[in-house]
């Protein structure tokens, strides 16, 4: 399968990756190779096979409903790029 640069741009946008047209063209080659490689799966004998999401056939453990965490806002925000008044700042979101 061949991936066009425009398709790379579409995926990059969905994944929120800035990408110039030149980069998109460069990535298109590698991505095409990968998808062509992955096409080997097409012949796999998987009729009636249940998908396997996880290596172990286990079930979710449940945590008792109790507060176990204490406030560490200062610790977490010491490494934040932009905070004010305890809030994380981003460019204005218009709704």
């Amino acid at each position: 399968m061949s991936v066009e640069a425009s398709e790379v741009q579409r995926i990059a946008h969905l994944a929120r990756l800035a990408m110039s047209d030149e980069q998109a063209r460069e990535f298109a080659g590698g991505l095409s190779d990968i998808f062509a490689f992955v096409e080997q799966l097409d012949g796999a004998p998987i009729d009636g096979v249940e998908p396997m999401a996880h290596p172990l056939d286990a079930e979710q453990r449940l945590r008792p409903d109790a507060v176990t965490e204490t406030d560490n806002r200062e610790g977490f925000q010491a490494i934040a790029p932009a905070v004010e008044g305890g809030l994380y700042l981003v460019p204005r979101v218009i709704e």
Partner: peptide
């Protein structure tokens, strides 16, 4: 998201 009180920013 809190929009009040910030110049051109949104607080989270």
């Amino acid at each position: 998201s809190l929009h009040e009180g910030f110049e051109s920013m949104t607080g989270i």
